[in-house]
């Protein structure tokens, strides 16, 4: 009985995770919008809204 083995071509086509990230424009878009939105805009806005109003 023939055993089913993994074809060498398929094994060599495994794409590293970093390559998959770089080849996925929409994942990059998500990261490129989320990072500055959270770290620059939202964090900054939270700090500004906590400034007490002058009396």
């Amino acid at each position: 009985m023939a055993t089913k083995t993994k074809e060498p071509e398929a094994a060599s086509e495994r794409i590293p995770p970093m390559q998959r990230l770089l080849d996925n424009p929409f994942l990059l878009l998500f990261l490129g919008v989320t990072m500055p939105t959270v770290l620059y805009l939202m964090w900054g806005l939270m700090e500004i809204t906590q400034i007490p109003i002058a009396e």
Binding site: L22, L31, M35, P36, W43, G44, E47
Partner: peptide, 30 residues
């Protein structure tokens, strides 16, 4: 080279903060 572009995607926009470095009311951490 692509990783260098990835660094732009992740971090380049944050440099906007240098225009606010003397603003009172925003923390030194930010």
């Amino acid at each position: 080279s692509r990783t260098a572009f990835l660094m732009y995607i992740l971090f380049l926009q944050l440099a906007s903060a240098h225009h606010l470095l003397v603003e009172p009311g925003i923390s030194a951490e930010w």
